[in-house]
Simulated assay, not measured.
Amino acid sequence: MKRWFLAKSLNSLIAGMLVVIIILLMIWPFVYIFLSSFKPMKEIMSRATLLPKEFTLRNYRTLLFARTPVRDFPRFLYNSFMVSLITALCTLVVASVGGYSISRNARLKRGIASRLLLLLYVFPTVILLVPLYKAFVSFGLYDNLASLVIVYTALAAPFCTWLLVSFFDSIPRDLEESASIDGASSTVAFVRIILPLAAPGLVTAGAYSFITAWGEYMFALVLISSNLKKTGPLGLATFAAEQYVEWGPLLAGAILIMLPVFVLFLPISGYFIKGFTAGAVKE
């Protein structure tokens, strides 16, 4: 019995150490980028130390206040935020209506429509670049942030719809029947009863679509050409030229792009994890 207990404790200790090592390896690049963003340029290029020898905020001042007609990083972040926010709202509308319809309609649920929801993710999205570019040029939406909202919503909506179907399935239909007996229409029951009960799923879907739009680079590079319409990732790329890389502002910009995701979604991380786990379990 004592040997079994010692063996179990040793296995738990080894497993815990492996988890700690993996976590440290995962967060190490972010820690290094964060600390290096406070280093002067000469220290970034000459020393591979973790802590800055000369602490400076010059990189952030350059990033936020040294604005030019070509480079305006606060404007880039604002563009990313607006595109991501509108994408999240549009995705929630499409996914909630679509997910509820599939959940409550047996024919749709058994049909090919629900089975093909995730077909988009089978193919690399790069194959959509040329057709979408030609389509948006034809419709006069090239170099327009609305084109990014349309693309990001189309990319995020299928997965979010599939995710919300499971949440709507877990909500008893007796609640809707009781509401209809009390005189509530199907729309009122959906808005006032179903959506509040599916709040964890909506939070998860909104967070997923926001993050998808926030960090996307490929479609923004192809569909946006004006300097002041660039998003954060595009603006960050302006600090890396062919002959010279401004490492200080580049590292500071990487931190500012990552920061909103942590600040906005750290408080709701529990809902985010719960959404991915509970949504796939059916009672």
Rank of each mutant, 00 (worst) to 15 (best):
V83C: 02
F5E: 15
K42M: 10
E246F: 12
A15S: 14
P260M: 09
L57T: 13
L251K: 04
G215D: 14
R173S: 06
A280M: 14
V20H: 01
L117T: 06
L117H: 07
Y244T: 09
T68V: 03
F38E: 00
I273D: 01
F159S: 08
A48L: 10
F239T: 01
T231Q: 09
V151Q: 09
A278Q: 14
S180D: 02
V137S: 13
S185E: 03
Y217L: 15
R75G: 13
S269C: 05
L117Q: 07
Y100A: 13
I268C: 04
N59V: 01
V222E: 11
L145D: 11
F272Y: 12
S114E: 09
G232W: 06
S170G: 10
M218T: 15
L228A: 10
A220D: 12
V137N: 13
T187M: 14
K53P: 00
V281F: 08
A95E: 06
I255K: 02
S178L: 08
A106R: 13
C160P: 05
E216T: 07
G248I: 06
P233S: 07
K2F: 12
A213H: 04
L119T: 14
I23V: 13
L35G: 00
S178W: 00
I127L: 12
Q243W: 12
A254M: 12
A156L: 03
T277P: 02
L25S: 07
S80Q: 08
A241E: 14
G111T: 05
I150Q: 08
W214D: 09
R104C: 07
A88N: 01
A237H: 09
I23C: 04
L63S: 02
L259Y: 05
E283D: 08
R107D: 01
E177P: 00
G206M: 01
F167M: 07
R173F: 00
M1F: 12
F30I: 13
P260S: 10
Y142D: 06
V188L: 12
P131F: 08
K8A: 15
T91I: 03
V188D: 07
Y60A: 02
L129P: 01
L259E: 06
T187G: 03
L236C: 04
K53A: 07
S186Q: 12
A254V: 06
I171T: 09
L85W: 02
M41H: 13
R3K: 12
W4M: 12
C90E: 00
A15Y: 11
F34C: 01
I33C: 05
S186I: 06
V83D: 03
S46D: 11
P29A: 03
T231A: 03
L236M: 14
V94Q: 05
P233L: 04
G215M: 06
I181A: 06
I21V: 15
V93I: 15
S80R: 10
I150K: 08
T277G: 04
W162K: 05
I255M: 12
A156D: 03
A241H: 09
W28G: 00
A220Y: 11
W4G: 14
V94K: 06
E176R: 01
A199C: 06
M17R: 10
A157S: 13
F219Y: 13
I86W: 06
T49Q: 02
V70Q: 13
A280V: 15
G98A: 15
A252E: 04
S170Y: 04
I171S: 07
A66D: 15
